[in-house]
């Protein structure tokens, strides 16, 4: 076990019936690092997230979160991770505060401590003044920030984000990405960011490229562009996967 790894996925395979969604996929996220998981629609990103979060069990392979086996020490593994799913999972009928209180209760954070953390989270994610507003009345960007605040309430060592910027405008996207990257440097949180939007990546970000359930390439953005002799990561992706991406 590598104590520095926030996430260690080894040789994961998974099928939906006869359809193989993941084929011996492996990836690692170190503490404090930002790792992007690139893949076109249907590549297996969401399936991988569902496995890492324990929603689905792989037929093969293992998942370690902060050194805790997802299968053998499920509660500790789940307690070490925060998740922002592809589709919004906040309760539209409840207010920002009610959603965050609900999340704090699920994580077992005592009420007094939860109050402080919720207050800090609201400030940190630019949600001040929106506490009592129902989620349904917020913009897409604000909802995403509520989800992020919720995912970080219990101070996880690993943050999983599945295409979190889909549907956001350019400015909201840019702010959201910067904010998450600051969590890596400031809080030491390991981040796994699934996306198909290449412009969200910086040159020193670690990248895994997933295609038809297999990890076909891995390295930093600068390493991959250099290796493949192209200008940017989009070109690397197009070269390897052969599909047009944004």
């Amino acid at each position: 076990m590598n104590a520095q790894l926030a996430l260690d996925v080894e040789q994961i395979s998974f099928s939906y019936g006869q359809t193989e969604a993941l084929k011996q996929a492996s990836l690692q996220v170190s503490a404090g690092s930002f790792v992007a998981l690139l893949g076109a629609n249907g590549a297996g990103k969401t399936t991988l997230f569902s496995i890492v979060t324990g929603l689905y069990s792989p037929k093969q392979g293992s998942v370690l979160v902060n050194g805790h086996g997802l299968r053998t020490d499920t509660m500790s593994a789940l307690a070490s991770m925060g998740v922002v799913f592809q589709r919004s999972t906040v309760d539209m009928d409840l207010s920002v505060l009610q959603n965050l209180r609900y999340a704090a209760d699920l994580q077992g954070i005592p009420r007094a401590d939860a109050k402080l953390r919720i207050h800090a989270g609201i400030e940190q994610h630019g949600l001040s003044g929106l506490e009592k507003r129902k989620i349904g009345a917020l913009s897409g960007g604000q909802r995403r920030r509520v989800e992020l605040a919720r995912a970080l309430l219990h101070r996880p060592t690993l943050l999983l984000l599945d295409e979190p910027t889909v549907g956001l405008d350019l400015q909201s996207r840019s702010e959201f990405v910067s904010h998450v990257k600051s969590l890596c440097t400031d809080e030491g949180t390991g981040v796994l960011w699934a996306t198909h939007l290449m412009d969200e990546l910086d040159t020193d970000d670690d990248v895994y490229i997933l295609d038809h359930g297999q990890v076909i390439e891995q390295g930093t953005v600068s390493e991959l562009t250099q290796t493949h002799g192209v200008e940017d990561i989009s070109a690397v992706f197009n070269k390897l996967v052969g599909s047009k991406v944004s």
Partner: peptide, 14 residues
């Protein structure tokens, strides 16, 4: 279907 069930199921409890 809407996804909010996932919030519950990824909580660190049996």
């Amino acid at each position: 279907e809407m996804g909010s069930m996932r919030t519950l199921l990824v909580s660190p409890l049996p």
